[in-house]
Design a protein around this nucleic acid. Structure first.
Lengths: 207, 207
DNA sequence: CCGCATCCCCAAAGATACTG
DNA sequence: CAGTATCTTTGGGGATGCGG
């Protein structure tokens, strides 16, 4: 995993650090907080344990994450982004925002892995979200937004709670269609939130 | 090059489109205008012609670039980004900006390939550049900035012309040190331009 | 269980040669 | 010039094993 691209270019250099297969997805999963090895395996279908181990070692070597042992009685190891690693957020968000344009609603159940809702919300709405406490449920997934920050799982004292299936949540965010979800709480605030979601745009080929 | 990551996530989807090795570098080289096949080979040291051919075919299939035949007498084929492809610019810029933080000055001559200066300038200064016409020479490379837009090669009627070797240009941009370059024209304007360059920041590991 | 290391196999990448 | 064809090498995916 040493240098691949032997040219003087900031982007080539960035790709030397985080351009390997799976690497950005590992970082994505660590963006919302530290995770254990097996948590990462769950969220990265098909990764192969050796690859994950290699990626984690490389990322640690580059100062992008650190390996930490939780205090007893937990005493398990977690991987956590450094500040340097967290500073990849703007780049990842722009990339995901571009990707979101040609990503339709979830096609098969099999595509949905733990954390998908939080990841999607982080891209679509977390940038300019108005202050407030929002909780979203799409099937089994629950993710929340607290003053512009995405957090995994449910929250207390939500201003708005939205529930639906994945398609319904998709329709809500992308088309601002409320027909397939149930909303509880301050609907005005929800509408305000959806204002900040990027508008749907045409792409040449949806593949 | 079909789908690699089988999960519902905007970033995973983006990486399915442009996450293959070399792909973002190909797009980077097309950002400043259409290029021929062999132009790309020159700018991508070590790519292997078959890989480039594959990447170009995939990118065309995804609507990110088009293959165009120039009108006679040139009649050669060029690859050109579509609007959809050009919209990757913000993502690429953020990524390169992050990469620039741990990229030192050029170490060996062998790292410098055609277009490196334009690529670097695009990242470092083109975002918020003040209006004006700037021309930079670093060794053999010449790139210019016209009202915030990077163009390859020299320009007429430059407000400022800067010349030096790669290290000197690096010192100018990163440390705002004028000692290793020669400046001709409106130095005040140049200083104003350098204001927009991101400040040097510490990174945990420079590797 | 969790956190990997090992092994096997195949697919993709690098290098080179060659052709329309 | 713009690729294709071929060959070799490297790296990834999947299963399994194994110490803590």
């Amino acid at each position: 995993m040493a240098k691949r691209y032997e040219q003087y270019c900031p982007m080539a250099h960035a790709l030397d650090l985080v351009g390997d297969r799976w690497t950005l997805l590992v970082i994505r999963d660590l963006m919302h907080g530290p995770k254990r090895y097996t948590d990462l395996v769950e969220r990265l279908p098909g990764i192969g344990t050796n690859i994950l181990a290699t990626r984690l070692r490389d990322l640690e070597g580059h100062g992008i994450l650190v390996r930490r042992t939780l205090p007893p009685p937990a005493a398990s190891k977690v991987y956590e982004l450094t500040d340097y690693g967290r500073e990849l957020r703007p780049a990842m968000r722009e990339l995901a925002l571009w990707g979101a344009r040609s990503l339709g609603p979830p096609a098969e159940e099999g595509e949905l892995f733990e954390g998908w809702l939080a990841n999607a919300m982080d891209v679509v709405i977390a940038r300019l979200a108005p202050p407030g406490r929002f909780e979203f449920r799409a099937g089994d997934e629950i993710a929340s937004l607290v003053d512009g920050e995405v957090v995994d799982g449910p929250i207390e004292d939500a201003d708005v709670r939205v529930a639906g299936d994945p398609d319904g949540i998709y329709a809500l965010f992308v088309d601002r269609c409320f027909d397939l979800v149930s909303v509880e709480g301050d609907q005005k605030l929800l509408e305000e939130l959806l204002e900040v979601a990027p508008a749907r745009t045409e792409v040449p080929v949806s593949a």
